Simulated scan of single mutants.
Amino acid sequence: MMSWNTLSDLLKALSGETRQKILLELFRDGKERTVNQVAEEMGLGQSTASEHLTQMKRAGILASRRMGKEVLYRPDREMLLSQLQGLIQLVEECCPPEP
Rank of each mutant, 00 (worst) to 15 (best):
M1H: 14
M1Y: 10
M2Y: 12
N5P: 15
T6D: 15
S8E: 14
L10C: 03
L10S: 03
L11N: 05
L11P: 01
K12M: 11
K12P: 00
K12C: 11
A13C: 04
A13L: 02
A13M: 06
L14V: 12
S15T: 03
E17A: 15
E17S: 14
E17W: 04
T18N: 06
T18I: 15
R19V: 06
Q20I: 14
K21I: 04
I22W: 00
L24G: 10
D29W: 05
D29R: 08
D29Q: 05
R33Q: 08
R33A: 15
T34L: 03
V35F: 01
V35L: 04
E41M: 13
G43W: 09
G43V: 09
G43Y: 07
G43C: 09
Q46Y: 11
Q46L: 12
S47M: 12
S47V: 13
S50K: 15
S50L: 13
H52V: 05
T54L: 13
Q55F: 01
K57L: 12
K57D: 01
A59D: 05
I61L: 14
I61A: 02
A63D: 04
S64G: 02
M67G: 01
G68W: 10
G68R: 12
E70F: 03
V71K: 12
L72T: 00
L72K: 11
R74F: 10
P75K: 08
P75T: 08
D76L: 07
R77E: 00
R77A: 04
E78I: 05
E78C: 01
L81A: 11
L81K: 11
S82W: 13
S82C: 03
Q83D: 01
Q83Y: 06
L87D: 01
L87T: 06
L90R: 05
L90N: 02
V91C: 14
E92C: 04
E92I: 08
C94N: 08
C94A: 15
C95D: 03
P96Q: 12
E98K: 10
E98S: 11
P99A: 14
